[in-house]
Design a protein around this nucleic acid. Structure first.
Lengths: 174, 174
DNA sequence: CTTTATGCAAATATTTTGCAGGCGC
DNA sequence: GCGCCTGCAAAATATTTGCATAAAG
C-alpha cells in the first residue's frame, strides 16, 4: 500500500553526484568517510538521527567518528540535500530534502518517536477541501502529535523508539 | 510571507484559562512565575526561544529562573498549548499551539493568504490512523500549500488576502 | 607537496535534576 | 501544614572545536 520511501539506487547515485559537485565547487574533498555517511544517509532515505547514522556507518567502516558524522551532515544541510528536523525531545533528526510529498507524521510527544504514514482517504479529502476553496495543493504537511503505546503506559504497549536500540528511529506504515 | 498574528487579549485569556484548567486537573498549582511565563508566551504569540522568553519574563519579575521557564514550557507543551519547533541551529523555539481544532490551514504560496478550515472526515480519519498504531492524538498540524484562485489566474477568482482590508490575514471556513 | 579531513578528547552549549527553602491551596 | 514550586548550581546531554596525524588532489 505504501510505496517504498527509501531511495532507489539511481536516486542515491544522483544525490551522491550532487554532493560531490558541491564539494568540488567549494574546494572540498571527497573522502571515504563522507561517502559512506552520505550514501548511508541517502539510501535509508528517512528520518535519521546522528546516532543511528553513526552506527550504520561504523558497520561499514569502524574508522568513523562522531564529529565526522556531524560535520558531514552539516555539509549535506548546507547544500540542501538534508534538512534538520526536530519534532520533540531527544536527538535532532535529519531527513533527505526534496522528499516533500509524503510529510505525514505521527509523533510521540513523550519519546520523540516518529512514524510515517500515508492515508489515501486523507489525501483525497484534503484535495477535495482545497478544491472547494478554489485552491490547488502543491505540497502539504500533516503532523499528528500524541503519545505512543508505551508512553501511554498501556499494558504490553511498545514504544518503537525505545525498543529499537539501534534503529533509525523510524518506521513505515500502511 | 505572512506575519504571525499576535493573540488578542481575549485569546490570551482563553489560553490562560486552558492552562489553569490543565494545572487544576493535574493537581498542580498556579504560581506567579508560571502565569508570567505563560502570559508572556501567549501574548507574543509567535516563535519564542527560551532565552527571549526568560528575558521578557524577568522584565516583569526578576525572580524567574532558567529552569522554571523550561519547566513551564514543558507543561504548556504537555497540555498542547505550545509546541517545540527547531528549524536550524541554536535554540529550540516554541510556538503557541492552542486552539488545536484550528490547526488546519490552507496557505497560498503566492500571496501568503491563510485560510483556516475544519473537516470532520479528515479529523476522524487521522484519529483512526493514530489509533491503529496505538497512539492517541493530542494535537495536530495540517497545512496545505497551494495557490489561491486569484493566484491561479482563474477568471472571477478572488484572493481573499488581497480583497480583504488589512485584518490579521486570516479567515475561517467550514 | 599543500590543503583539507579525521579522530579523539576537551570545550561548549543546552536541557534536566537534586535540594533546601518558599508559596499556593 | 502538606505538597508542589522555585532558584541555584551541579549533572546529564548534545554539539562543536583544537590539534596532531592521515589522506585527497
Amino acid at each position: 500500500m505504501m510505496e517504498e520511501p527509501e531511495h532507489s539506487e539511481a536516486d542515491v547515485d544522483s544525490l551522491m553526484g550532487q554532493f560531490h559537485a558541491y564539494l568540488t565547487k567549494m574546494g572540498l574533498k571527497s573522502t571515504r568517510q563522507r561517502d559512506i555517511i552520505a550514501e548511508t544517509f541517502f539510501s535509508t532515505g528517512g528520518h535519521m538521527s546522528i546516532e543511528s547514522l553513526l552506527g550504520l556507518a561504523r558497520a561499514q567502516n569502524p574508522r568513523v567518528g562522531y564529529a565526522t558524522v556531524y560535520r558531514t551532515l552539516k555539509l549535506l544541510t548546507e547544500c540542501g540535500l538534508a534538512a534538520e528536523r526536530r519534532f520533540g525531545e531527544g536527538h535532532t533528526m535529519y531527513e533527505t530534502a526534496g522528499d516533500s510529498e509524503h510529510h505525514d507524521h505521527l509523533i510521540c510527544v513523550e519519546c520523540g518517536f516518529v512514524l510515517e504514514f500515508h492515508n489515501e482517504a486523507i489525501e483525497r479529502e484534503q484535495e477535495r477541501v482545497a478544491r472547494s476553496f478554489g485552491f490547488n495543493v502543491i505540497r502539504h504537511k500533516h503532523e499528528l502529535y500524541g503519545m505512543c503505546p508505551r508512553a501511554r503506559g498501556i499494558k504490553g504497549g511498545s514504544c518503537p523508539a525505545r525498543d529499537a536500540g539501534r534503529g533509525n528511529g523510524r518506521e513505515k506504515a500502511e
